[in-house]
Design a protein around this nucleic acid. Structure first.
Lengths: 264, 264
DNA sequence: GGATGTGAATCTATTCACAGCC
DNA sequence: GGCTGTGAATAGATTCACATCC
């Protein structure tokens, strides 16, 4: 789900597969929970269950980091927490800026999980002058004109974009020009960035659409919902309107004369 | 990034690869934009650029849906919009419930992108009695006790969880028991669900951690940031503190005696 | 005995490159 | 000539199964 231009595995990085990297935070969270309960060691089986993956995958993932377990015993929780934190770069402090302090931006700023792991909200930035100075999550909002200065002064290399779609690319360009090289984009837009800049995107509407796809499948298969599939009340209900293709229902755009042809 | 139990491709579904499904919403968005500008046809090259993928991938993706293009010409925009909408199940209306109307939940409820494509917020639900009745995004919040009734009455099969982590599994269980079979989870927790239920998760902190991993790599590689990599100001700055591993900085949990060993 | 670590096998996804059609 | 559609080739991720070590 990472977007942006390809992001080369950096010349000869000790190539940890992207899929593995994406799971490390999951392991870390599970390990942190164990650590807080003072659990000293954990097996791949247990940890995998806590992280919601299977144990073979977890062991393979860890094998890319090195041999941090003990055969016949398992993994030392504290040790692994540290190793994964270090691998992810969380042993250092990452100042971030968030641009676009509307509903979503404000919610994100208030979201504790942000600050909890090495990330520090260095500044909140908005283009609306009436927002400027207002504290959100205890941090006063600053004006967009100061973006470059703020990034420079705080040594920010990670930016979060929570602006409306229309403003996102422009904000992105300014962030990149000012030295930001990793961007988390909440605006429903494809950002184009130069090589060397990473973009990840989070898109609520896309996630829902993917769910709808599978949901439709479940309903469409009627009785035959794979195996052990719930013929859930909701699925059965959903099956009904499946024959009423009101072409692009609910979209605002032009949807008048849409062809109603069968698929190949 | 889909989680939850495996979700079998449903017996003999006209197997569209998961990776393709995940890109369909992207194509749809790009196409909708073209449609609004009344662009009649588009080539794979152009559309791919707009969606941020390469054209070979796009053509392959479309080939799973059928042959909807015209050689030498391209794709008919309106036609494709309809075909993809239908494939994703967006030609029907999906009532959703959102549970947990805190900062994030309220922001999501207000987020236009939700309602814009076949999704309709049927109800907002919270466990805080003082929230009940308050309108959020024009919809009065309802009490958690009514969850089952609300789902039943509205024929809801998709639920959004935006509660604190501690409450998420419990809410999830109730949603599933009431007939919901697709869940979008914003709580930073692994949800366990029975077979046949799909869970997708969106985790802000995980996305940042993945960015931090790559960011660290860029900084660590010093001059050799792959090729064409910006030796950006921020990257150079970030390189400095890389030698100060203050073990799990900023974490709230126990982080006293963390081993400081080199990796294998 | 018990659990890790890892080659080999499998499955999935991406990319290539070109035949086929407009 | 231009662009789609798709087999074949390649790359990447997951799973299997077992040798290895505590």
């Amino acid at each position: 789900m990472a977007t942006g231009r390809t992001h080369r595995p950096a010349t000869r990085s000790r190539g940890i597969p992207e899929a593995t990297v994406a799971r490390l935070p999951l392991y870390l969270r599970a390990l942190t929970a164990l650590s807080e309960r003072s659990v000293p060691t954990v097996s791949s089986e247990e940890l995998a269950a806590a992280a919601g993956v299977n144990s073979a995958k977890l062991r393979k993932d860890f094998s890319y980091l090195g041999s941090y377990g003990t055969r016949g015993v398992g993994y030392d929780v504290e040790y692994l927490v540290y190793q994964i934190s270090r691998e992810l770069g969380l042993t250092q402090d990452w100042p971030i800026v968030m641009v676009g302090i509307g509903n979503l931006g404000a919610a994100l700023a208030n979201y504790g999980g942000f600050a909890s792991r090495g990330f520090r909200v260095a500044a909140l930035i908005d283009a609306d002058p009436s927002m400027v100075g207002k504290p959100v999550a205890g941090i006063p909002v600053q004006y967009i004109d100061d973006l470059e200065r703020i990034i420079e002064e705080n040594g920010v290399s990670i930016g979060v974009i929570a602006t409306p779609a229309g403003a996102a690319q422009q904000v992105c360009d300014r962030l990149v020009a000012a030295g930001v090289s990793s961007i988390l984009n909440f605006a429903p837009t494809v950002l184009s960035v130069p090589d060397g800049v990473d973009v990840r995107k989070v898109d609520l509407s896309i996630e829902l659409q993917i769910l709808a796809f599978h949901e439709q499948r479940k309903a469409g298969e009627d009785g035959a919902v794979g195996e052990a599939g719930l013929p859930s009340a909701a699925a059965v209900r959903a099956a009904a309107p499946a024959t009423a293709p009101a072409a692009t229902a609910g979209r605002k755009g032009p949807d008048g004369d849409v062809p109603a042809v069968m698929p190949a």
